[in-house]
Each structure stands twice: as C-alpha cells, then as structure tokens.
Design a protein around this nucleic acid. Structure first.
Lengths: 134, 134
DNA sequence: TTCACTGCAAATCATTTGCAAGGCC
DNA sequence: GGCCTTGCAAATGATTTGCAGTGAA
C-alpha cells in the first residue's frame, strides 16, 4: 500500500495497475498532459494499455476530485494531478502550460451566495522564454 | 451604414450580409450560442448560409477582437458578442451560461510583468432557478 | 482582373459507445 | 456468481480543409 494507492482509495477509486500508473504519471509530469500523451508514455510500461482506459480513468479521476480537468487548450482536454485551487497560464507561442499560484475563489466575496462549486482561471500570453526570443 | 457595419469595419472586418447577420445575432442573443445554434437560427433568413461560413466568420470575429471565444463548455465552442472583460458562469443542471460582471484582470497586480494578453474566468454551479427546483 | 468571400463535400481527429473477455471480491 | 475493469473496434460529432464558383472593388 503506497501513497498513490492511498490517495486513490481516499477518493473512492480502486487502485488498479492502470489507474496507479496514470495517477503516478500525472504527479511526476506536471506538464498538464493530454489523454494521448499519457497513453503514449504509459504504453511503454503497460503494452496492453488502451486509450479507452486512459479516457475512462481520467474521467473517473476528475469526477472523484482526484485530478483536475483543464480546458485552456481549445484542441484537447488536459489534466492536472494537483487539485488545490490554482490558475493556469498557456504560452501562445510554445504552447507550454504553467501553474500559477493564484486562488481565484478568494476574490469572490461570499462565493456569490453559494452558487459557485467550481472555478477555472485561464491566462494566455507569452512565457518568459518565448518573450526573450525573437 | 448602420452601427453593426461600423462596428465590423472598426475591427477591420468587411461587412458582408453573412457577417452582419452573425454579429447582429450575437448582439441580440446574449445566450452564448454555439456555431451550430447560430447556423440553425440564421439559415431561416439566409437559406444559402453554410456552416463553413459561420465557422469562418466566428474565427475572424475572435481574431479581430469583435467577439469573444468561450471555452466553458467542454463539448462545443461558444461565442459572445460582448467583448468587455467579464466572467462566465455555467449552470451544471440546465447548461445556461450567464455573464458575470467581474473584471478578473483587476486582480492581477502589475499584470504579471506584462505577460498576460488574455484572461478567461469560468465558474460552474447551480443557477438560482435550478437551485430552487428539486 | 484580381482577390476576398462563400459554400459544398470530404477529411480530420479527439472523444465516446457497444460489447465481449478477464479479473477481483 | 456477480460486478467492476479493461480494451478492441466502430461510431460520433464538432471543426477544418480542399476547392470551385461568385461577387465586389
């Protein structure tokens, strides 16, 4: 029983080999990967892995609050294994997605009368690396 | 030369019949419609309208800053003809999208060193109507 | 005449669904 | 045994692309 197992169990998710691998991948790759990137990376370790399972698992993680869905990229869904409230920045040149330590919910006085259950804050521009390159 | 024409011209967009109709629709229907909803509504007035033109036009509007892309709905892109900074709330039950008069950029001191060009603030929960219904 | 705009048809591609086999409790 | 999980194959559906016809400057 390692910490990943405990984390999943704590979110009501049975820890299978595939689920552990995906959660582990999200924790070790804070790049906000797409389902396909996760699939391509993990099929090396788990050759029988299917993309359906990756999609199923990510949906399960999000539903159970074990991972966060990120809709900043218009093309693909992206995922973050870090679920504390924070914002995301996407570079318009290199496409990199960066975590920003901003808890936006603090800016919503009285949570709009308790109406709000989820909040997403997306920012776009040029990252420091791309800004200094011509 | 009406105000819609002037608005489009002011954004570097030549006012064609189709473009005027789409801009007009966005202004008169603050429901944050999808491309398909716009297409279905306007084909009644413009029977030859094609969905490609709707997509082309919406992309042009967004690129030229005449309309705003809204990525709050994971299934479809949505659009808003009102481009002043504001946030969006989506009801998790009825799917309705509501404008919120919150200018999030004010919460970013010094605009993160000028890195940020665009910001999107999405909120989800139950709207007042759905909250009072069982 | 040229070039932007439109629209049809086909292609793309991320995601979902149906379903059968395997595995865990 | 029964339910949960997995994975293959096929379907779905929003959006994009190729391309030819039309029209405006």
């Amino acid at each position: 029983m390692n910490s990943t197992s405990q984390y999943l169990s704590g979110h009501g998710i049975r820890p299978s080999v595939q689920r552990l691998a995906i959660m582990h991948y999200l924790w070790n790759n804070r790049t906000h990967p797409t389902a396909d990137e996760i699939f391509e990376a993990l099929r090396k370790q788990i050759p029988t892995l299917s993309k359906t399972t990756v999609y199923n698992t990510l949906k399960l993680f999000v539903d159970q609050g074990a991972a966060m869905y990120i809709g900043i990229d218009e093309k693909n869904a992206r995922f973050d294994g870090f679920v504390e409230p924070h914002a995301h920045f996407r570079c318009k040149k290199c496409g990199k997605i960066i975590d920003l330590d901003i808890n936006i919910e603090r800016f919503l006085p009285n949570n709009f009368n308790g109406m709000i259950e989820e909040s997403y804050f997306y920012l776009k521009g040029l990252c420091a690396d791309c800004k200094n390159t011509i």
